[in-house]
Design a protein around this nucleic acid. Structure first.
Lengths: 339, 339
DNA sequence: CTCAAATGCGCAAACGTTTTCTCATTTTCG
DNA sequence: CGAAAATGAGAAAACGTTTGCGCATTTGAG
């Protein structure tokens, strides 16, 4: 337990230059593969840098007017349900480029949001990714006239902005068609509040496929609503659905549990599909849920790469980019081993 | 949709000085409340800065040899179950100090970990908080000889390090005593794998209170294990427990569901307490779970403040700091309205 | 062999702050 | 009233890079 030798002097480019027997300027150019010099010189400098364990001081570099190799991720998704997968994607895509990410969680508080954005700008972030928990709501702060590029991922933004969202309609189609392909003929849709844009998009896609027999039940995003919806559906003596497409995994879990309690076998009697593919819910359900994954990690990667490109001056077409969803097959539909 | 005026020239301290009619040096001192000058001069500079909307360039400031107002949060908790509340606390505590947080999620990959740590150091973070998902495991990277202070929160660290963890023993005692206080006389403990330090700590605290009648069942951290444990407990014809203290909320939910399926009423016949107070699980259980909250947000605050203090040169006593847990009463025990 | 072009490299400025000195002016005190 | 002390403010260096420009020296062409 030796006394920590706190002040290990960091190697500066000056030290590298000295070791390689060149000037600081040449050292810099050698390391950045710019400027003119012998291949031998360049190699010698690089070797010296390597041996000394030289790591350039990002502050000095950033100050010098170039990039800071830093971006900000702003979100109001306190729980991280959507932001974390996104973050994972961003981080994975950008770590190769030496970019680090400031994560700022703002709780729908405009003042806090402004403070965080200002802090980011003070720190000269190369760009900002705005994220949230609803694609039809905006963060409580205006990001449209910032001196750095901004992209929106899984949240709404101005018309002339670059936005990434999942293709919910396509995801819905996959889900419904999967059930139809398994022979289900009476599929209902149990989903969240009609006020959500994603609810509408998913419901529309569902209706388009199911056609005349479409039946949509709106409620809360909760397991409890799943239970209640089943109670409603099984209330009358009439025929019951043999497929239930749910607006999210929590509803789906409620539905599956309710069906089991009624003695209805899932997936034999009824197929159930969820949405979000929230591992923690989908995997714990009995049977585990087949669910639509929004590929948020991929979305994060794209958003990260895009904001980086913009930071480098590349011009990016504004507009909405929809990334495909993917059906993750577990056992709540049958067909698990058929795939 | 006007063409974005991208290059809004940032106000420099030079501009402030000019506006206030003083030198750059004086301006700097005025704004930082250092140096000597008339109160009037100081005020005039501050007013000019305010009016111009001056924000100091953090890079220049950092370069100048002082702090970067940046810290790194390193974690291998991919899912964010523990890290996000921690992060919220850190962020909340540090935003007042103008400090931003780099979040780096490493997936138990030593190489990736090293890359991220190096990136943080390049960016001159003032300190690093290491975090994880188990208090008896370390991150796959050695942080003990870094040029910046490190504190460990909810993860293990070297003997001479500063570590923050929750007081699981105290949390367990609260839970068991709560059930005992409600008249429960036969309380069993259904928990996770014995290999976890926190499992041992919670189990020991439980045993100490319950005494001779202690019964501990180890299994996985899953709902499925909760179901199975109930099956085991109710297998024989003998007397059944009237209280079940669970190692986490997922197990507790499994237990509650299994009891309901057996026709055992919770909380009338049996009280159940969970651990973690994971809202998403605890609140969705029927009835909602009474659970032990580890106060991770508070833990994050403490860790943040501590690493900051260390960065400012204050010396902090190494060792483990245990922060108290708190029982969150819902309905799975009864006594909800008694409190 | 001469002159132009190309090559290899270093000097010094710049980035935006903070901080250490220094200096002129004012105040204090004997 | 004179000298010491205190005060207000500015000049300039420093932090660690990158980069524009200039200057020898070498290469190539005629």
């Amino acid at each position: 337990m030796e006394q920590q030798a706190k002040k290990v002097e960091r190697i500066r480019i000056y030290d590298v230059a000295l070791a390689a027997g060149v000037s600081v300027a040449t050292a810099s150019k050698a390391l950045n593969d710019t400027g003119r010099m012998t291949a031998e010189t360049r190699e010698r400098v690089k070797r010296a840098a390597m041996e000394l364990g030289f790591r350039p001081n990002a502050m000095a570099r950033g100050l010098q007017g170039k990039r800071s190799f830093t971006i900000g991720l702003l979100t109001n998704d306190t729980y991280g349900r959507f932001t974390l997968p996104l973050m994972a994607g961003i981080s994975e895509a950008l770590v190769d480029h030496g970019v680090s990410v400031f994560l700022c969680t703002i709780e729908d508080d405009p003042v806090l949001a402004k403070i965080h954005v200002d802090a980011m700008l003070d720190k000269q972030v190369d760009g900002i990714i705005a994220s949230g928990k609803r694609i039809d709501r905006r963060l409580p702060v205006d990001l449209s006239h910032l001196p750095v590029p901004v992209v929106y991922a899984f949240t709404d933004g101005p018309d002339d902005s670059v936005r990434f969202v999942s293709d919910d309609a396509q995801g819905s189609r996959e889900a419904v068609q999967w059930m139809a392909g398994l022979g289900r003929e009476s599929i209902v849709h149990v989903t969240g509040p009609a006020s959500f844009a994603s609810v509408k998009e998913r419901a529309d896609a569902y209706s388009q496929i199911v056609g005349a027999g479409a039946e949509i039940l709106h409620g809360k995003w909760s397991e409890a609503w799943g239970h209640e919806a089943v109670a409603q559906l099984w209330a009358g003596g009439g025929p019951h659905p043999d497929g239930i497409f749910c607006g999210n995994d929590q509803i789906a879990r409620g539905v599956v549990d309710a069906l089991r309690e009624r003695g209805v076998d899932v997936p034999r009697d009824v197929s159930v599909v969820g949405f979000d593919n929230w591992e923690i819910v989908a995997a714990a359900t009995r049977p585990p849920l087949t669910s639509v994954d929004m590929n948020l990690k991929t979305l994060g990667k794209e958003a990260g790469l895009t904001v980086l490109a913009m930071a480098e001056g590349k011009t990016v077409e504004p507009g909405i980019r929809k990334l495909p969803c993917q059906l993750v097959v577990r056992q709540s539909c049958g067909g698990a081993e058929a795939g």
